[in-house]
Design a protein around this nucleic acid. Structure first.
Lengths: 337, 337
DNA sequence: TTGTATGCGTTATCAT
DNA sequence: ATGATAACGCATACAA
């Protein structure tokens, strides 16, 4: 069933059918009605490939993320896909894992597939080493690239971020201003966002003129789901006689491990140990006491990102950087006056 | 940059370039080398739309799921996308939510986009009312449809499921055979899989000749993330003087709510209250004590599903139903001898 | 082994 | 307002 079949049955040319299909104004109402009836009756659907060939677009956006099953990333995917679809775009998803080579090849596959734009979800797509971001700059020569929670100065690259620095600083200050200075900073990523969070923590100490202690900055190397591993990790620190009155974590999952650590060691939360997480995920309310955590308004970030994406594709001028604030949600794992 | 440009530069015809591109045997090694060099040097990439138009395929599979941020579904998406990509297929994702109308329109969008097949992820795509599954049967006339954790008898529909009935029965028996008969069955879905789990619970009672009590089958209507809501729900039951010595949940999140309920009411787990979850998710290890939970080997299910999908697309005869067993992972929320 | 010619189903540019 | 026709870029049947 093609446009030719419809045109024959309607007794018009394919050009007219095409005009009807694309809502062109230049078509007599009567003709339009007749054509639409036949289309309806035949259940005809335009061939997306042919249309893609002509328009050089299939209204498809490439979504790149390290791991679609990650608590945070999966939510981002959900919001972004929803908003794209609402704007008439399809989403092709590709999960890259955390290795650079796979990120490169996945991106290149998406470009080969002729997507209209690529959205890179998660700060882990920006590497410390500038050279390692070259593949993104190259891609930006072909289609606009949108980054969520990452920053890259480059033409045709648009960044939508939350202010992780400020959020983490605020979280640290909450503790410091309660007189707690032995805060264990627990993190598991040195991505763009990971480093911003770390400096937020450090800056809080600087602001209050308190010396930093490197031993209080601990990097957890286990998997993103290994809550038990985090617990053991903290136990090991305890063995080494590292004393801390608070745990400030770069991700809820790490904070959940801290809750567990406290419970197993019969350390009371929050009176003896304060714990703060990040992302305000499902884990924050799963814990008991519930986690104080930073909510970075992911839904809003995603909808702004999609807005920028659609705008850019429509040829509008869009801001290359947008930064939004997060919000510290206070719950039972800290003392809140 | 097209196949014509390459052909000119290489001094051959476009047919030869096409043959090189598609790895045809009938091309002289020297010619192949020369063409490949030019392709490499120009950075030429075939136009996917044109190729799609000719072959009537862009090697793309449609992924339908209710909610890509759901703990279980997001893992399924991860595994499926990974395996599809390994087989040279792209994945276009569409999240439908739980309303039938949206499921229908999303499926229809995917078909319009000319995907090679559609994978429907999650048992919530099969409705009780047979008429409401007609849209799937219709779609199956166009492309093969793969169902994960759902069952539908229909030509060109392939089902890959786990044996939820048996798993839930086993879980219930673990409790019953410890002398516990006042098991609260907590569920939040009446999907195909949800009903199978419920009958598994019931069948365990029948097997041991113990009468069932309807009050012990409680449906939670809150959101899939509302752990606190589950906790309140159980508190309300407690107010109504419903006594139970175990909670058997159709999903870890419900079990996590039960853990929280126990903690807040100072009920000891597992000595006073046994709790069993389902899906063996991150939440299972987040709880303290950790949840005994059913692991249904999702990764294996997904890889079988993709295998069936690829096989079908290659014209091979594939089994229309595949059922796999789950496994009860025993942890601290139950007594395990 | 290689080249020529045609079809795939649209959209868009001309005419009329 | 409508129709004829040329792209779009590839795969492939057929010829050589």
């Amino acid at each position: 069933m093609t446009i030719y079949d419809i045109s024959k049955q309607a007794g018009v040319s394919i050009a007219t059918v095409s005009r009807v299909l694309n809502g062109s104004a230049n078509v007599k109402p009567g003709t339009r009605k007749k054509v639409l009836e036949i289309i309806e009756q035949c259940g005809y659907t335009p061939n997306a490939f042919a249309r893609g060939l002509g328009l050089n677009s299939m209204n498809t956006i490439g979504l790149l993320c390290a791991d679609s099953s990650d608590l945070y990333l999966s939510k981002a995917i959900y919001y972004i896909e929803r908003d794209l679809r609402a704007n008439g775009y399809h989403s092709v998803l590709s999960c890259t894992g955390y290795e650079l080579a796979n990120k490169k090849s996945s991106l290149s596959l998406l470009l080969d597939q002729r997507v209209d734009s690529v959205i890179m979800i998660g700060s882990n797509f920006i590497e410390d080493e500038a050279d390692n971001n070259q593949y993104i700059r190259d891609a930006a020569k072909q289609v606009p690239i949108m980054l969520l929670n990452a920053d890259l100065d480059c033409t045709n690259v648009y960044c939508t971020m939350c202010d992780d620095f400020k959020s983490m600083q605020e979280a640290a200050l909450l503790l410091i201003d309660q007189g707690i200075t032995d805060i264990l900073y627990l993190y598991n990523s040195t991505s763009f966002s990971g480093l911003k969070k770390l400096s937020g923590y450090r800056s809080a100490y600087t602001m209050r003129n308190i010396p930093l202690n490197k031993h209080y900055q601990q990097f957890f190397t286990g998997s993103h789901e290994d809550i038990d591993g985090v617990c053991s990790f903290l136990n090991a620190l305890r063995q080494k006689e590292l004393k801390f009155s608070a745990v400030l974590a770069s991700e809820d999952m790490l904070a959940a491990g801290a809750i567990k650590y406290a419970r197993l060691n019969e350390i009371r939360v929050p009176s003896e140990l304060k714990i703060i997480g990040f992302n305000n995920s499902l884990l924050a309310t799963c814990c008991e006491p519930e986690l104080t955590s930073v909510d970075n308004h992911l839904e809003r970030l995603c909808s702004e990102l999609v807005k920028t994406c659609i705008g850019t594709l429509n040829g509008e001028e869009m801001p290359q950087k947008a930064i939004f604030s997060g919000e510290l949600i206070k719950r039972g794992s800290t003392l809140n006056m």
